[in-house]
């Protein structure tokens, strides 16, 4: 992570219409509450000093919440500055379906987790694969051109938002 990477990440997100909200550990819970459209479902974040327990977001995820939630809140493993990509690390808490099913995905990104490019991200996920784990590079919203025009929001989220923890 460098200031340049953060700036590039921010401009890449802007280019793909993904809103970015900066906050810090102290302001995290109120920021989340101000951003989510309920009902919201989430997975535990495992981040220092922040928790969804202090927010309106419901955990743990259930099938009903996956179907009915308007917003899914997850952490990410990393982010890729050059494309505004979120590296979603699958886990046994359900980060993958929570980032996928609800119409809005709200991703919590630590500034220290921003990587410059795809090459640095494939290096990092390689270690996860060796341990039998899975990751998704998710960039922007789910979309299709198959119905004769570009439409956003198909099998995945129609809106993606990023909350950037600037002190982590």
């Amino acid at each position: 992570m460098s200031d340049t990477d953060t700036q590039l990440f921010a401009s890449s997100l802007a280019a793909i219409d993904v809103p970015l909200t900066r906050t810090d550990t102290a302001g995290f819970a109120s920021t989340i509450d101000s951003l989510v459209t309920g009902p919201a479902v989430g997975v535990p974040l495992h981040l220092d000093g922040v928790s969804l327990d202090d927010t309106v977001v419901q955990t743990p995820p259930t099938p009903r919440l996956l179907r009915e939630a308007e917003t899914g809140v997850t952490g990410v493993g990393h982010a890729i500055a050059e494309h505004g990509t979120l590296v979603i690390d699958s886990d046994d808490a359900g980060t993958e379906p929570v980032s996928l099913y609800p119409p809005t995905h709200l991703a919590v990104v630590r500034e220290s987790d921003i990587l410059p490019d795809v090459a640095s991200a494939t290096d990092s996920v390689g270690e996860r694969f060796a341990a039998g784990k899975s990751s998704i590079f998710a960039t922007g919203v789910s979309s299709t051109g198959d119905m004769g025009a570009l439409v956003k929001g198909v099998h995945g989220p129609k809106h993606v938002e990023v909350v950037l923890l600037t002190d982590q």
């Binding site: 743990p60 995820p61 259930t62 099938p63 009903r64 996956l66 179907r67 050059e82 494309h83 990509t85 699958s90 886990d91 046994d92 808490a93 359900g94 980060t95 993958e96 379906p97 795809v118 996920v125 996860r128 694969f129 039998g132 784990k133 899975s134 990751s135 998704i136 590079f137 998710a138 960039t139 922007g140 919203v141 789910s142 979309s143 995945g156």
Partner: peptide
Amino acid sequence: DISQYVSMLTPPVETPTIDFENPDEPL
């Protein structure tokens, strides 16, 4: 520049099973 989703799955995946017939049990 990159597709929306580059999914790199190492199956069987860690993601918990999802039983929509028991909607209120955790995944």
